[in-house]
Computed example of a mutant assay.
Amino acid sequence: MDAALLHSVDDGVATVVISHPAKRNAMTAAMWRALPELLDALSADRAVRVLVLTGDGLTFCAGADISSLAGKEDPQALAVLAEEALAAFPKPTIAAIRGFCVGGGSQLAAACDLRFAEEGSSFGVTPARLGIVYPASSTRRLVSLVGPATAKYLLYSAELIGAEHALRAGFLDELLPAGQLERRVAEFARILTTRSQLTQAAAKEFADGRTGRDAHWAAEAAASGDTAEGVAAFLERRTPAFTWTAGG
């Protein structure tokens, strides 16, 4: 089957599927190039409130399809551009992982806000197998999730770790029994669609270390009326009708 990034939008949740079944969903050069453009389109869609990134079938992503990258533009640069576009997506992002999440797959998963995985999944950061210097930005992102010791363990050895290890290390946020990943991710994404986009957008910037935006978010909160609506809805025991949306 052809390698492609598939996507759909349903009830506020955009789902992007990494699909390259012949190579365990390894990312081709064309897929790396296509991801930022797809993310730009989805971020501009006001119907989208949450993004879920997953893999086709029983594998999340086994990394980069080296055969598609040989002799072409710098494969590492392509991966970093895609990773940074995913990290910069202005709405909550969830990686839904089953099977192998290795190399470029781990890069993409780490760039998401949250990572949910199914038991039996495997994780690895594997540039040491190819003599590649892992990008500084990707290394910092990995360290922010798992700490310097585990990041060194993964980068030095290029060994795979199991899902339980990944959960203990802080790479994963939730680990689900077999057969429950899709339902749990759908349930959690639905919860996120009901929450304040204002809160989520500000929290994403603050948690990701962006500074100098305190006054901006205070002004956004004051102008939106969402705080007053949230308090009123709480007191009236009803679902709040927040109006602020990412991108205005």
Rank of each mutant, 00 (worst) to 15 (best):
A202W: 06
E182G: 09
R168G: 08
F234E: 15
A189L: 04
A96M: 05
S157Y: 01
K72A: 14
N25E: 11
M27W: 09
R98K: 15
A219P: 07
A34H: 03
V17T: 14
S68D: 15
L5Q: 08
Q107C: 10
L192H: 09
A233C: 09
A158I: 04
F89A: 00
A62P: 00
L108D: 00
L114H: 02
V185D: 00
D2A: 12
G57K: 08
A178W: 10
V102Y: 06
E159Q: 14
D226S: 09
E164D: 13
G55A: 06
G131C: 11
A222L: 14
A70Q: 14
A22P: 03
E187C: 07
A221K: 08
D45C: 06
W32R: 05
Y156W: 10
R98D: 03
A189M: 01
A203T: 08
D113K: 06
G104V: 02
A223M: 10
S106R: 13
G104T: 03
V185W: 00
E205Y: 14
L167I: 06
C112V: 09
F188V: 05
E182Q: 15
Q197K: 07
E73W: 08
W32Y: 11
V9C: 10
V143G: 01
A30I: 04
A41Q: 14
L53R: 01
V231Q: 10
T28G: 03
L235V: 13
V102S: 04
T15C: 05
G103W: 00
D11M: 12
A34E: 05
V143L: 08
S106C: 15
I94E: 00
D208N: 14
S19V: 02
L181T: 02
L69K: 03
V16W: 00
R190Y: 07
G170R: 14
K204N: 11
L160T: 12
A241K: 15
G248I: 08
D10R: 03
P90S: 10
G209I: 06
R141L: 11
F242M: 11
A202I: 05
S19L: 03
A70P: 03
L51T: 02
T150Q: 13
V50S: 02
S122T: 11
R24I: 06
L6H: 12
P148V: 15
L130A: 12
R98C: 07
D56V: 04
R184H: 13
L53C: 02
L130E: 11
A136W: 07
P240Y: 10
C101M: 07
G170A: 11
A95E: 02
A232Y: 07
S68I: 05
L142F: 01
R141V: 02
L42D: 03
A128Y: 08
A158G: 09
V185S: 00
A186G: 12
L69H: 15
R168V: 10
A87F: 11
E84Q: 15
L6Y: 10
